[in-house]
Computed example of a mutant assay.
Amino acid sequence: MGETALQRKNMVEGQVRPSDVTDRRITAAMSTVPRECFVPPEWQKFAYSDETLMIAPGRFLLAPAALAKLIQTAEIDKGERVLVIGGCAGYAAALISQFTPNVIALLPDEAALRETNEALATAGIGNVTVVVGPLASGDTAHAPYDAIVIEGGFEDVPEALSAQLAPSGRLVGIEVGHGVGRAFVLQKTDRAFARRDVFQAAAPLLPGFEALKPEFVF
């Protein structure tokens, strides 16, 4: 077994499985997808760290256990259409693409798009569609989505995103506030949205996902 293959195995056995990740599709994907392909060369020795890895301004990989639990919370079935927002490295989309072929990764700019496409090609993954646009606006071109995975922290879920969910669609992400991060799932029902908190986790706040501040009136 090569060094990176051993690191992947140790990540799954030492970080992911002990965190109540029971979906074997996720652990199989994390055992297969080379995480080091999604970080710059100077950061590759830290690719399997158990913490969130900041690889550039506004770009990061969530801690492996937190990301695995977030994907598990989305309960993605084979064939469902999934939008992945945030992180801006492509790793989460690469994992999800291992068990459903309809994955769209939304990135903020052309530089991130270019680097993510290169990483996906290096990892041998060809079924992720990478698009560019404001993260908080989602991607209406491929909507509706059965699942939206926000890989990062936010103070408020933009209405534009929840509006892009298909019937019974799920949105998962990490709400941050007052120093605490809480992962939750928002599920679309016939008449409204049902929210369920799942676990505590830390995540960098994504630009454009800040809560609107009230205006002062003099």
Score class of each variant (00 low, 15 high):
2 G>H: 08
3 E>D: 14
5 A>F: 12
13 E>P: 04
14 G>A: 11
16 V>G: 07
17 R>A: 03
24 R>E: 15
24 R>N: 02
32 T>Y: 02
43 W>Y: 11
44 Q>H: 02
47 A>E: 02
51 E>S: 15
52 T>P: 10
54 M>E: 13
55 I>N: 00
63 A>Q: 09
63 A>P: 04
76 I>G: 03
80 E>Q: 15
81 R>V: 00
86 G>T: 11
86 G>N: 06
87 G>R: 07
92 A>I: 05
96 I>G: 02
97 S>V: 08
104 I>L: 06
108 P>W: 14
111 A>W: 04
116 T>S: 14
121 A>C: 06
121 A>W: 04
122 T>P: 02
123 A>R: 10
126 G>H: 10
137 S>G: 09
142 H>T: 11
146 D>F: 00
147 A>I: 03
147 A>H: 00
148 I>R: 02
149 V>I: 12
150 I>Y: 10
152 G>C: 07
156 D>N: 06
158 P>F: 04
161 L>M: 02
164 Q>G: 07
165 L>R: 01
165 L>F: 03
168 S>V: 08
169 G>I: 00
169 G>S: 01
176 V>M: 11
182 R>G: 01
188 K>E: 08
190 D>Q: 15
201 A>H: 01
205 L>S: 09
207 P>T: 10
214 P>A: 14
217 V>H: 14
